[in-house]
Nucleic acid binder design. Structure first.
Length: 491
RNA sequence: CGGGGUGUAGCGCAGUCCGGUUAGCGCACCUGGUUUGGGACCAGGGGGUCGAAGGUUCGAAUCCUUUUACCCCGACCA
């Protein structure tokens, strides 16, 4: 947990940007609102990609790829969907440039206007359901369980690296089912995949729940989500899984013949997570020394730094280290030996700390003599001297321990920052002075939710699964309520 | 789109109010040397149309006009 984060809230975004920059993860690009993901940042995304992709395949999904461009007419077939995304779409109107007849450079060729504008996908439901229509005739064609790894564009007014960029990378799963029950099971299954990924790989505890109608995905009947709490006390939606009912099937006329030879509309789900998860990773674990990565997502899990004065020492260390590297690799631990002579060891210590490498091993002449090494862990910044002989075993244990420790710390933080509020004053006081999740009664109406959002800048993050029922009064209207819901200010 | 702020070397900044030597500092970079267990030190060196355009002036980074880009805070949103 970042030290003194409470007093730093107003410049938390500065702190965040600083981590992104110092750890060399990403930078703003020449195109407003778009982000350049640098090699180290992308390496983290690749780790996420690989882990998620494996989980998708385990649950029976296949990858496919659909077009970047969506004809405008497709996009407007589902009314609430278009309403949700219309305000942030990039639109292609022309397909050709020409030399500027009046000067230098190029201009859009007015003769090359498209008959129908194309939308750069903000999400792919429409183009995919237009495609599924051709894939589905019979119940035997179902289910379709596809995922695509892609970029999407949402023309946001204000952007932040990883958390909200005009273009971002994500995966979007789109499934088609013969029955409502099956689709609902799928929606829940994939939310569980996300929750498992967040907790086991990212070491981020998440709350699984239902979105309120206001926060639901445009076009969904039900949106399930995982919500995480960041170190500055704001919530972050880390992933969503939508039960789309038959909305898109009806909009795109996707029907199948069931066993009784009757036509039925297909049931749908969609689910996605994005590069935003990297933002979650940063804001959950990092400290004032820089990024902190959970071992399972660290591109480099162990860095080995030699400390030497002479070339002989350097060689001797190199030979010793080779043994360790082989052992670690045999355990599938990614290890980097940094014997770059142009950097001093102290510089390297800082460099890898800022980049969040979980375990650092330093070996110098002193260690060679005693058959030992200095091992430092990033999460606690503790250093200890260990025997060289079973160092690989110790490191393996330490990596597991770091993975678990990060989760425990984040869970403790979330628990300490989840509070109940029974009055409006209490509600505001917690939001203003402490942050975090606030469990409070709500009368269940979208109108009240909207008013609370306006008055307190807080939204209902979710209605947790298995939420205990409890009689109470809405903190805003005083009307009766059957359960508390989780509010927070959010990213 | 509203409210603030900033554009000066690769990066971070000072200088601008009150115009005046050859535009400066830290980091980074290059050369040589000494160093190397937590971002080394010394010496020397390279790198700038001061965001852009126009104006005022003997003289503009500095004053005036216009313009543009980016950042932060809102509205929008994963």
């Amino acid at each position: 947990m970042a030290k003194n984060f409470a007093t730093r809230e107003e410049n938390y975004s500065q702190w965040y940007n600083d981590i992104v920059k110092r750890a060399d993860l990403a930078e703003n690009s020449a195109v407003r609102g778009c982000m350049v993901i640098k090699p180290y940042g992308y390496a983290i995304w690749e780790k996420m990609h690989d882990a998620l992709d494996a989980m998708f395949k385990e649950t029976g999904h296949s990858n496919a790829y659909f077009p970047l461009f969506i004809p405008k007419s497709f996009f407007s077939k589902e009314a609430s969907h278009v309403e949700g995304f219309a305000k942030e779409c990039a639109v292609i109107t022309h397909y050709r440039l020409k030399n500027d007849p009046d000067g230098q450079g190029v201009v859009v060729d007015p003769d090359a206007k498209l008959e129908e504008e194309l939308i750069v996908r903000p999400t792919s439901e429409t183009i995919i359901w237009n495609t599924y229509k051709n894939w589905i005739q019979s119940y035997r064609d179902l289910p379709i369980l596809c995922n695509q790894w892609a970029n999407v564009v949402r023309w946001e007014m204000r952007t932040r690296l990883f958390l909200r960029t005009a273009e971002f990378l994500w995966q979007e799963g789109h499934t088609a089912h013969a029955t409502k029950e099956e689709a609902m099971e799928e929606t829940e299954r994939m939310l569980n995949v996300y929750a498992t990924f967040a907790e086991k790989y990212m070491s981020i505890p998440v709350i699984k729940g239902f979105k309120s109608p206001n926060e639901r995905f445009a076009g969904a009947i039900e949106t399930l989500c995982i919500e995480a709490l960041m170190q500055d006390g704001k919530a972050l939606q880390a992933g969503t899984s939508h039960f789309l009912g038959q909305n898109f099937a009806k909009a795109f006329d996707v029907q199948f013949l069931n066993k009784e030879n009757q036509l039925e509309y297909v049931w749908a789900t969609s689910w996605g997570v994005s590069t935003r998860l990297i933002g979650a990773l940063i804001m959950t674990h990092s400290d004032d020394n820089g990024l902190v990565l959970p071992p399972k997502l660290a591109p480099i899990q162990v860095v080995i730094i030699p400390i030497y004065k002479s070339e002989e020492q350097r060689q001797a260390i190199g030979e010793k280290v080779d043994i360790l590297i082989k052992k670690l690799k045999a355990k599938n631990i990614s290890v980097k030996y940094d014997d770059d002579d142009s950097k001093r060891s102290g510089w390297k210590f800082n460099e890898y700390e800022v980049k969040g490498v979980p375990v650092r091993v330093a070996i110098g002449p002193r260690d060679l003599e005693n058959n030992q090494a200095e091992v430092a862990r990033r999460d606690t910044l503790e250093k200890q001297t260990l025997s060289f002989d079973n160092l690989d075993v110790e490191i393996e244990k330490m990596l597991d321990d770091i993975q678990q420790n990060l989760f425990n710390k984040a869970l403790k933080f979330r628990e300490e920052n989840t509070r109940k509020a029974d009055t409006w004053e209490e509600f505001l006081d917690i939001l203003d002075n402490q942050g975090g999740f606030v469990a409070a009664h709500w009368d269940g109406t979208p109108e009240t939710e909207e008013k609370i959002k306006e008055a307190a800048k807080a939204t209902i993050r979710c209605i947790p699964f298995n939420n205990p029922l409890e009689e109470g009064k809405c903190i805003f209207t005083g009307k009766p309520s059957k359960q508390r819901v989780l509010f927070a200010r959010a990213y």
